[in-house]
Design a binder for these strands. Sequence first.
DNA 1: AGAAGCACTGTGAACGTGCACAGCCCAACC
DNA 2: GGTTGGGCTGTGCACGTTCACAGTGCTTCT
Lengths: 337, 337
Amino acid sequence: MEQNGGRRRPTIKDVAAVAGVSRGTVSRVLNGGHWVSPEALTAVQAAIKSTGYAANRHARSLVTGRANSVAFLLTEPQQLLFEDPNFSVLLRGAADALAKRDMPLLLMVAGTAAERRRVTDYVTAGHVDGVLLISSHAGNPVVGTLLRDGVPTVACGTPLGYEGKVGYVAADDVTGAREMVRHLRDTGRQRIATITGPLDTPGGVQRLQGYRDELGGSYDESLVAHGDYSRLGGQRAMAELLERRPDLDAVFVASDLMAAGALITLAAQGRRVPGDVAVGGFDDSYLAATLTPALTTMRQPFERISSEMVRLLTDVINGEQPAAITLPTTLIHRDST
Amino acid sequence: MEQNGGRRRPTIKDVAAVAGVSRGTVSRVLNGGHWVSPEALTAVQAAIKSTGYAANRHARSLVTGRANSVAFLLTEPQQLLFEDPNFSVLLRGAADALAKRDMPLLLMVAGTAAERRRVTDYVTAGHVDGVLLISSHAGNPVVGTLLRDGVPTVACGTPLGYEGKVGYVAADDVTGAREMVRHLRDTGRQRIATITGPLDTPGGVQRLQGYRDELGGSYDESLVAHGDYSRLGGQRAMAELLERRPDLDAVFVASDLMAAGALITLAAQGRRVPGDVAVGGFDDSYLAATLTPALTTMRQPFERISSEMVRLLTDVINGEQPAAITLPTTLIHRDST
DNA sequence: AGAAGCACTGTGAACGTGCACAGCCCAACC
DNA sequence: GGTTGGGCTGTGCACGTTCACAGTGCTTCT
């Protein structure tokens, strides 16, 4: 309420004085209000309001040993993740979920070795309570460090090489991929190709897995090309596929961004979508609906993924065992199939 | 070096004991190393390494009254900013620049009134030293609050309604827009339209200003349509322009994302780019190069903008007067003009 | 009536730092 | 040879909070 006229910020002591109680009582009110009389409670609450008191988090953290904050850690080699439209959605979701718990989100980037060093130093020094890990490529050295130092960690997507050792939240890639391939087959496609993600990422191997599972015996190596989750990668992989198998009539692309690239190649080579070739994506990023034609894709529930990551992480911080959560994907039917 | 076997983290006292000096000396080494003898210096440095000591930032903040962290504050009503490709670049740049100063970046979102309240409480409570403000729409209530409470703030783009009261870093929108329009005219275009950003944002008004300045007398209201920085908005505005002025032969679009939308409309209506209509964008986001045709656009130096914002903010935090920094834009000539 | 419990309150000691201050040693100066 | 002063060092206090503990007054049970 009061104006900050260059004066010192009110402390718990000031509140206690105004309320006519002791520091201890104010502290108890602040932390749940148990074991304090109704009169004291209201007096303290009024005093807090009138003084404009806000707890000093540094002092609190110092004595409790908890930072009450969480790091959102990006460990991609390049800024590839920043081109990824999903990243923003995930980031925002995490920030929202954390804000509801009154915990700030610290954004940390660990691309280079120097950054990696700084980040692990920071994190293992206990300046955050836990880490939301946006890694993906297997063999990430950061994961090992966090694990070894016992830092509560929740990954986004199966952490290849660390399954069962670190908690994670992921979409059901295998089933999602199967469903898309089944959809393509159900609409009469015979020669269904796929553009995969990098095979050292969970999305890369698991969506390919689903593609294979669904196709079973009729699986054919020449219908598989590999991308790197970038638009350009999708463009190239599509060109490669068309050269190898000009007869293909559908393609399941492991990400919307790569699908956007594939559409460019298809258009450039005069193939009509979905007339000549049906295209199915994965993610349902905001891109999908704006492409021409609008992209049929598997929706990943990113808002849910981020909120579950935060929930899981706070649980782990509070001593629970890390768990693995898999969430279902949904087929979004648009114009490209 | 030592393993964290559930043991307590080393404190400055442990370091002092190992080095055979007092806390004070270790503290001096930590803060610049002035007034400490060479022998003590090396002894302390060795002790820091052998104990694996890292200063407790909470304790430090408690006594110094500085948080040593900065908030990256998003104040857009919706998640519009998260669709904006520039946002990621800015965010990453800021995180990098801050990391070099060993300051963490706190991401805060203040879209709704409740979020706004929480954020201003947090910030004015002194839990961060300053704010990197990613606002844009005029009349943002958060700016006033920050200003009133004397929170060091640096905005991205001219903070409409608060010019001269808060420091900012911006690209030279007016000159950039002029240059693009001049380029269109120099390549022989006669009827140059424009799609503006929202007119309560600096980019909206200033890029329109540049367009007008360059066209001078030959300026015509019917060649101006308004967008909202979204792809769909660009799509709609382009349709509006084509209906009103089917004879137009060029369009300057105030953002790449809107230009992407404009290209969709132009393609749908059978206009060839750049044959029938030349299209110039603004931003040079990663989108621009991947569009078909690749987009001619004005490059905003986002990496530089974010690093200058951080530099300016740290200056303000250290007591300097806030300044206004304007950075030049560059014409990137591609295939759409 | 005294003991025992309950509901609540106040107090002192931490937590790990930076900073002001006082003290030390040694060289240089009068 | 005492005084000054500069280079370096150690010590006590403060920062704002939580937590354990010791009360206090009041009810209830033996």
